[in-house]
Structure formats: C-alpha cells, structure tokens
C-alpha cells in the first residue's frame, strides 16, 4: 500500500461513520433538537449490528438492525424532549449514558469477538486506477453512500418542501405550527432519522472497519459528531467536508508518527479538537452567517400553544 493510497483509504474509512452520524444529527438539529446521545446510540448500533452479523452472517441485516436499535433509543429521547418537554442537554446526556450501558451489557458475551469484514464493493474500472483505485473506490458500499446522502440532504434542504418545513420548524416552530404542520411530528421524525443514522455509523465501525466488538469501541467519536455539525455550520456539504478533514487529521496524526516526525503525540491527538474549537469560533464570529444557518430554536423546549 502506498502512502497516498493509505491516506485516501484511511481518511474515508475514518470519516465515513462520522459523516453518517453527523448527517443524522444535522437533520435533528435543523428541526431544532440538539441530541447529545450520539455516543450511546452509536454504541448500541455497533453492538446490535455486530451480534446480528456474528449470528447470521448477514451484513445488511446487521446494518439495518443496528440502525433500528439506535432509532429505538432515539425514540425514547424524542418522547422525553418533545412530549415530556425535557431539557435537551440533560435528556441527551441521560439517554446517551443509558445507551452506552445497554451496549456494554448486551455486548458482554461478545467482548473482543471478531467478524470477517463486510465485503467491499469495488467500483468497476475506477477501482483499478493506480493509487486512488484502492484508496477511494474499493470499499464497502456505505463508504460511497455517505457522501451521496450528504448530497441528497443538501438538495433536500435547498430545493424541496420537506427541507423547507424541516428548516422552518427549527427556525420558528410557532410559524410552522401556524401554517398547519405538526411541529412535534416533524421533530420526532427528524430525531428518529438521526438515531437510525447514528446506529448505521456504529454498525460501520463494528462490522466494516474495526470488525470487532468491545465495550468502549466508539471511544468518543459520538462527541466529535456533535462538533462536526457545528463545524459544518449546519450545512450538509460543509459537514461532509468537515468529516473528511477530520478523518484526514486522524490519519495524518498517525502517519506523521509512522514516518518519524517528532511531535508530542498528545499534541497530535488534540489537534482535531483544537481545530474544531477554532472552526467554531471562526464560524460564529461572522454573526450574520451563523444566524443564517444555525437553527434559531435549537435546544429550546417547544410547547404547543392552545
């Protein structure tokens, strides 16, 4: 494997789960709901998918069940914040803890077990190209689906009525309600979608990239997902860009070490987090821009007027 091939393939493999989960979170946040339970949902998705694959060998069933498992957790979160008017920060943390605990408990018999990696889907012709062939076009299907979903969501937000309603719900739930849409239903569906995507992201890690299960497998990636959405200023195309940058930073950090450049490794490990803070600051600095993109009602409890 050449260096460039590795950088490309390593980047997309590291970025794919982040992107999938971040797109889900983007939908939820666009509708006005901040879901901080991504880490727990990814863990639950990872373990559910792993168990399915271990027992049936059916990878797509695993992906689906992983998504559904996390979606059920997301449903619990949605009920609490939407119908029971729970604070979104606290509820997200609580449901996240719950999900992490459930994943650890369910996965205990499978601790350190492995599955064969999900079969890859080399793209005809392209995958035979030098360097970029193996780097970009010889992966599992989910790797190509992630940017496709990003494009789809960009288009939905930009040009469709569904996107408009979703955005309006996040901007001004009262108006959305007034023009005849049920705010709670819109938000509920967005959160479910977010959960499903987080579950798939977890499944990708456990059955396609790491191909093993162990408690703590997600190792903080759920928090990076939350940061990515802000990093991307609530726009699908920028979230995608952010995810690949983040993947590249992760890979770069390890590559720099393996080449033998001397930088404190803790500093390298911190680089993505520092970059996120800088990005958040830069993005937020331009007040106009942030107001254009950040859902105004994000994080606020919405209670239907009479």
């Amino acid at each position: 494997m050449e260096t460039l091939t590795f950088v490309l393939s390593g980047t997309v493999i590291a970025a794919t789960p982040l992107l999938i989960a971040a797109l889900g979170e983007l939908a939820a946040e666009k509708s006005g709901v901040l879901n901080l339970s991504i880490e727990g949902m990814m863990s639950l998705g990872a373990v559910a998918a792993f168990i399915v694959v271990k027992n049936t060998g059916d990878y797509w069933l695993g992906v689906f069940i992983g998504g559904v498992a996390a979606m059920l957790l997301a449903a619990l979160f949605a009920v609490i914040v939407l119908f029971l008017l729970g604070n979104q920060v606290a509820s997200g943390l609580a449901v996240g803890i719950l999900g992490g605990g459930m994943a650890a408990l369910i996965g205990k018999p499978y601790e350190s077990a492995t599955v064969p990696p999900m079969p890859s889907f080399p793209i005809p012709i392209l995958s035979h190209a030098p360097v970029i062939g193996r780097g970009l076009f010889d992966h599992v299907l989910l790797v190509y689906m992630a940017p496709a979903i990003a494009v789809l969501m960009w288009w939905i937000f930009k040009s469709t009525k569904v996107g408009l309603v979703l955005r309006a719900t996040g901007e001004s739930p009262e108006t959305t309600h007034a023009i005849g849409y049920n705010v709670l239903v819109v938000r509920f569906l967005s959160v479910l979608f977010g959960g499903f995507m987080a579950g798939i992201a977890g499944a990708f890690i456990s059955i396609a990239s790491a191909t093993l299960w162990s408690d703590g497998l997600i190792a903080g990636r759920g928090w990076i997902v939350v940061a990515l959405v802000v990093f991307g200023a609530w726009r699908a195309e920028r979230v995608a860009l952010g995810a690949y940058l983040f993947g590249a930073a992760t890979i770069g950090q390890l590559l720099v070490q393996s080449i033998g450049v001397e930088v404190p490794s803790q500093l390298l490990t911190s680089v993505p987090y520092i970059a996120t803070i800088v990005a958040i600051a830069l993005l937020s600095m331009d007040g106009k821009r942030i107001r254009l993109n950040a859902p105004v009602s994000l994080g606020r409890v919405y209670r239907e007027a009479h």
């Binding site: 901040l34 901080l36 928090w223 939350v226 940061a227 911190s270 987090y273 958040i280 600095m285 942030i290």
Partner: peptide, 27 residues
Amino acid sequence: WLRVRFNANEILVTLMLNSIALQLLYY
C-alpha cells in the same frame, strides 16, 4: 471568552476542552 468574543457555542467548546485537558494531563 470564545462565547463572548466570537459567539462560539459554549456546549461544544467546553466538550472539546474536556478532550484536550485529558491529553494535556497525559502529556
């Protein structure tokens, strides 16, 4: 400071600072 000066969301900044603090401690 980032919140006041740049309007940066404190939830995300403090979350990131948690991860950085841990690496600083390791160092």
